[in-house]
Amino acid sequence: MTAVLQVEGLHKSFGGVRAVADVSFAVDAGELLALIGPNGAGKSTCFNMLNGQLVPDGGIVRLEGRDIVGMKPRQIWRRGVGRTFQITATFASLSVRENVQMALYSHAGRLRSLLSRFGAAFAAEADGLLDQVGMLDQATRPCGVLAYGDLKRVELAMALANQPRLLLMDEPTAGMAPRERVALMELAAKLARAQKIAVLFTEHDMDVVFSQADRIIVLDRGQLIAGGTPPEVRANPNVRAVYLGGTH
């Protein structure tokens, strides 16, 4: 079985400073891979090269066997990559249902109509997705007034709208109340496993990482220093040194 996402030898420098150097990993369908590391380790840079926001200096990013380096974010989305953002990005003036419908209309290529009324189509599909993330009861509220944890759920529903093969989640639980965090990630994990979606996520909350990830890779100063199952990573002396400081 080929991996859904395969990254080989990824490189990126900013003004002569290496931000990401020779990073390689793969994510399989239905697998949750956590990317962790201290501040400034290169997690965001790495992430942004996968979603099309940054173009790598070198390396290969394959989505289901096809190279996606150099594609725009919207082209990558069309190839089946859903995203959630560290700071939630939803359409504040639209209702929860309309947010999800927007993704569905876009997926179906039906946004260019000037005279039909938006919202007539895909209502049932949108409600189905909202039901999956537990947001159906708030479908008519504008996103601008939702609680933060609920926005994260809406984002998840939008990310699932194009039936993605890969889900990129940047700090999925940042800014949430502690008790909501594991619940959200459990939900994402359940949906991903059921739909055989590969998930790559970065995360600060170690409870979330160690309870939900199938595998963990650790980035420090742009390089992968460890990778493996949660117990393996927890026992790795390099990782402990990075997290507790001291002499590197």
């Binding site: 974010p73 919207r74 989305w77 995203r83 953002f85 927007m102 876009s106 946004l111 709208a161 194009n162």
Partner: peptide, 8 residues
């Protein structure tokens, strides 16, 4: 950001 991320 989100618009681009859903293919608009």
């Amino acid at each position: 950001l989100r618009a681009e991320a859903i293919g608009i």
